[in-house]
Structure formats: C-alpha cells, structure tokens
C-alpha cells in the first residue's frame, strides 16, 4: 500500500469576518475531536479507573457480598490476608507459574521465529499452523490438558510409562502442577509470540547479517549478536505483556481440576483464584479487595523490575 502523507495544502483561505453560522461551525469543528475520543475516556473512567480506586475503599471495610458494607475496619482485611498462609502460597504459585510459562515460552518463540525467518516453502501454512492454538479458548485448553495430565492413567503419564518413567503426580505435587498449568499457557501463546518476534526479525536489515558472515560468524553467533539485539524492543514488549498477564492467571488453574479450589493444599492456587474464592465463594468482598490491591502492588513491582532490567540491557546494547 502507498503509505505517504502529503505536504500541507496550499489552497488559499478566505479572510472575511465570521458569521454566526460560521462561528458555530467553528466551535463544532473544535469540539468534534473531543466527542470522537470521549467514548474511550468515559468508559475507562467508569469501568476501569473508578473500580480500581473504589477497590481501595472496599478493602478498608468489612463488606460481604450478601450483606453489603458493614462499616470501616481499617487495615484488618490486609492484616488478615497477609496473615493467611494461603496468600503466600498463592503468591509463590503465581510467580512460579509465571516464570515457568514465560521463560520457556520466550525461548521457544525465539527458536520458532528464527525457523520461520527463512526462505520457507508455504510460508503462510507454517505461520498459520503455529497460530492455531491461539483460537482455542483457555477454558478449552484447560479442560483438555487437565485430562492429558491426569494422575492415574492420564495420557502423559501413560506415555512416560512407556519410557519406564514412573507416573508424575500432576495434581498433587506443587511444582508438577505448575509445570502442567504453564504448559497450557505455553500451548496457547508460544505460536502467537513467535509471530510477533518473527515480524521484528524481518525488520532487521540483511546487510547486518552479511557483515556478520564476513566477520566469520556462524548461525548461532549471528542469532546472538545480530538477531537478538535487533529485536530487543519487541522482546521487551513481549516480556512485559507476559508479566502482566502471567501474574493474573486464572482460567487454567480454576479448571485444572473439577473443584476449582486450587488443590487440596493450594498447590496451584494463584492470586487471582484466591481473590475469586474470597469474593465469590466466601463472599468476603473486603478481603478480596485487599488481595486485589496487593496483587496490583506485586504487578507494579515486577513491572518495575522488568523496566530496570530492560533499560540496562538496552543501554548495554547501544554502547
């Protein structure tokens, strides 16, 4: 497509004094842009910003889903959440599942992207192929993988058995359950992210590679010193979005077994699932709101760490 913008128009404009009608036209001309962008701001204020701020208010009250506001109780909700062992387990699980899903996912996405970033036959076929899992809803993924990872005679354990590996207790051991849940996330998002990275790779000028080849760099060396630096901004973008999403994971742990409580010992209870259980199973909106704010804090901290790390990487990169 032709992507150009024109130089300013040179048509002469009339300088006659404005009539009332023109003045109105002028006003509406100025107001129009604000009208056009207002839907987003109104909606964001009502269903985004206001609830977030109001969550803080609710978190300082004793508040039941059924009975409503039962009065101010200061920081009691926070104290009780922070004193609850389940909160800390949920924090551990969220971080663990997030790491298990984002680190391998980005590595695999990079590998797939660089495999796609070649002169393939049937390019579109391969690209569509890796994207297929993206259209399967997380709920469906969770139902399918929940069965693949069944403890007794599940398909994966059966497969392991044929190699003489004893069955893994996917629904009992915390780390195993995290691996299973992270696998669901990876299944759905790896292909998507490899296309994102592929696009970035294709924007790297070919002569960089040529220069590297002249310097005697092999494939791996090229990948590390040309490809990776070339896609750095995109890579940082992928990492940050997967942080924000990964720490709020809910669908997969909720449906990992039929009870939805995160396991008999909260093995795969995540913070969002904990929030849900407090709010809509225990009907304690006060505590649920406290968890929401704490989770907000956790995400902010991880976001900050990401930002600092990526800043350092990018300054090192530019040298």
């Amino acid at each position: 497509m032709t992507t150009t913008s024109a130089a300013p128009s040179r048509r002469p404009r009339s300088r006659a004094p404005l009539t009332g009608r023109q003045r109105f036209a002028n006003f509406s001309y100025r107001a129009t842009p604000y009208v056009y962008i207002s839907p987003f701001f109104i909606l964001f204020a009502v269903v985004g910003l206001f609830p977030l701020v109001y969550t803080a208010y609710v978190s300082l009250h004793e508040w039941s889903l059924v009975g409503g506001d039962a009065g101010w109780n200061g920081l009691d909700n926070y104290a009780s959440v922070l004193g609850d062992r389940k909160f800390w387990i949920a924090l551990r699980n969220s971080v663990s599942i997030f790491l298990l899903s984002s680190v391998p996912q980005i590595i695999f996405a990079l590998l797939i992207a660089s495999a796609l970033d070649t002169n393939l036959r049937a390019k579109t076929f391969w690209r569509m192929g890796v994207l297929l899992p993206y259209v399967v809803a997380p709920v469906a993924v969770a139902l399918i993988f929940g069965q693949l990872f069944a403890d007794q005679f599940g398909a994966i354990n059966n497969l392991l058995g044929t190699f003489g590996i004893p069955p893994v207790r996917w629904h009992v051991d915390p780390l195993s359950s995290h691996v299973a849940i992270a696998t669901m996330v990876n299944f759905r998002w790896t292909g998507y992210n490899s296309l994102v990275l592929l696009a970035a790779m294709q924007a790297i000028p070919r002569d960089y590679y040529e220069a590297a080849v002249i310097d005697g760099a092999g494939r791996i060396r090229q990948f590390l010193s040309v490809t990776i630096p070339g896609i750095r901004p995109t890579l940082i973008f992928v990492i940050i979005t997967s942080t924000i999403g990964g720490l709020q994971i809910f669908d997969e742990p909720r449906l990992y077994d039929q009870f939805g409580q995160g396991g008999s010992d909260s093995q795969w209870l995540t913070l969002t699932l904990y929030l849900y259980n407090l709010g809509w199973d225990r009907f304690d909106f006060g505590k649920a709101s406290a968890v929401a704010w704490l989770l907000f804090l956790v995400i902010a901290i991880f976001g900050l760490i990401n930002l600092l790390l990526s800043r350092r990487i990018s300054t090192e990169g530019t040298r």
């Binding site: 039941s64 889903l65 059924v66 009975g67 409503g68 809509w280 199973d281 009907f283």
Partner: peptide, 9 residues
C-alpha cells in the same frame, strides 16, 4: 450455593 448467595446479595 455460589449462585444463591451472589444473587441474594
């Protein structure tokens, strides 16, 4: 139970 209390509220 969840449905009952949610809608009662």
């Amino acid at each position: 139970r969840a449905n009952f209390f949610q809608k009662l509220g």
